[in-house]
Amino acid sequence: MEKSKGYKIFTLFNTLFMLFVAAACLYPFYYIIVASVSDPSTLMRHRSWLVWPVGEPTLDGYRMVLNNRRVFSGFANTFRILGLGLLFNITLTALGGYVLSLNNLLLRKPLTLIVIFTMYFSGGLIPSYLNIRDLGLMNSLWALILPGAVSTSNLIIMRSAFMAVPESLTDAAKIDGAGHFQVLFRILLPLVKATLAVMVLYYGVAHWNSWFSASIYLRDNTKYPLQLILRNILLSSQQQDMLSDVPMAQTPQAMLLIKYSLIVVSSVPVICIYPFLQRFFQKGIMIGAVKG
């Protein structure tokens, strides 16, 4: 296939641009890794680019993080929340998205409105809190899973994915007498794999990054997810209580190392899961490309 000159120039710039984006997004991680093994006293005074560890390299930060047992229970809890949460998320979103994509449903519009309205209107913090308490979910991991079981914007994305599937594909099955369940699970879901992968990613990251609900609903710190532990440690030096007038529990240097090492340690699983998800995602793209 012949390519025009303009297209070649475009490809060159496009590649450069892509490299720039990748670098800009990678650098912060690189920065954190380098900082986590730098000499903290030197690092505190260093106020610019970081290309190479400054001062005498050290692994003290990692030693301190791995000695903190909260980090491990945090990982375990986060994975528990992720596993159970995703199960609910994907099932409910697929069911809801499918039903709302059905053209011939009389109540489709009112149901859609019921769903969309919640995006812009909520009772607020206190009523939600009281609701969780009344449901008996206080101090339970379910308080972090159930209230976010369906995200309305994800539901809408799912719905559009189903709507984009040509009706001819499902009509044939329906003529053969397939019910809604069969249509959804046998025909539609395999066709929208790419969107499902996106859903797993969206919901998964939302669970991974969430800390606020945990901070208000949980009482035992053995149940804390990793992000809340991370956040408490990251902000602990800023929450210096003017009243408790004692020297900081950790030296400023140690705090700095712990912070950076903890960010690295807490990102490792994400980086490990990436290639897997990415492959799945790519596969989804391929299937999308073959389709039709």
Binding site: L95, S122, G123, G124, P127, P147, L155
Partner: peptide, 24 residues
């Protein structure tokens, strides 16, 4: 069938979104 499939989703919205709405 379709309405049955939507039931759990509806229950979710009623319990976690609509029930606390009186709080406004």
């Amino acid at each position: 069938g379709a309405y049955l499939m939507f039931l759990p989703v509806l229950v979710y919205y009623l319990i976690f979104c609509y029930k606390p709405m009186y709080g406004v």
